[in-house]
Simulated assay, not measured.
Amino acid sequence: MMSSWFFWALLSAAFAALTAIFAKVGISGVNSDFATFIRTIVILLTIAFILTATGKWQPFGSVAPRSYVFLVLSGFATGASWLCYFRALSLGDAARVAPIDKLSVVLVAIFGVAFLGETLSPRNWLGVLLIASGAVLVALR
């Protein structure tokens, strides 16, 4: 089970749900950008602890320059996403913000096909459409 992508994806979804709930409570009376900063420090320390505990640190020189470029771009995208997410949570209900945030699933499918050459079956596209529809329906007042 520990080597199953599905297991880890379910855990990711559960932790993402907790992120929304904990953040909504924690952001009360706190600037959303500062809240993102605190969250980022916690993540950095947690990952450093995990790398140390598991002995999985790598020499920085072992990472290819191309990988660095895309990991840095991913970091910028993550930071922008978190800033926008916390701003949205400070302004709206968690139960409405989170589903719109999960439209990222739809965008990943589209970007994966457009930029990575991935293919989706008609059934897969139906699922993407249902995810998009469901997110919008949940977010509507």
Rank of each mutant, 00 (worst) to 15 (best):
L73I: 15
L18E: 12
R123T: 15
L103K: 09
I43Q: 03
A48E: 08
L51A: 01
F37M: 11
A17P: 14
A77C: 14
T119G: 06
L130G: 02
V113G: 11
D93T: 12
T52F: 15
S90I: 12
P65C: 02
S28E: 13
A23L: 13
D101C: 11
V136N: 08
V97W: 11
A9S: 12
N124A: 14
V42W: 14
V105T: 00
S104D: 09
W5K: 12
T54G: 06
S121V: 12
R123K: 10
L11I: 04
D101T: 09
F76V: 09
L51V: 01
A20P: 09
L140A: 13
G61F: 02
G117S: 12
I110H: 00
D33T: 10
N31G: 10
M1K: 08
F60M: 05
A13S: 08
G75W: 07
P99F: 07
L116I: 10
A132K: 01
L51P: 04
I41W: 15
F37N: 04
P99Q: 09
W5Y: 15
Y85N: 02
S32L: 08
K56H: 07
S121G: 06
E118K: 15
I110Y: 01
R39G: 13
R39H: 07
L44D: 06
L18C: 08
I27D: 00
I43W: 13
P65L: 00
R66F: 02
L107P: 04
T119K: 06
W125E: 06
L51G: 00
F115M: 10
V63L: 00
S4N: 06
A14T: 03
R123G: 12
L18R: 01
V69M: 15
L51R: 05
I21L: 12
V113T: 02
A77H: 10
I131C: 04
A109P: 00
I100D: 06
L129R: 03
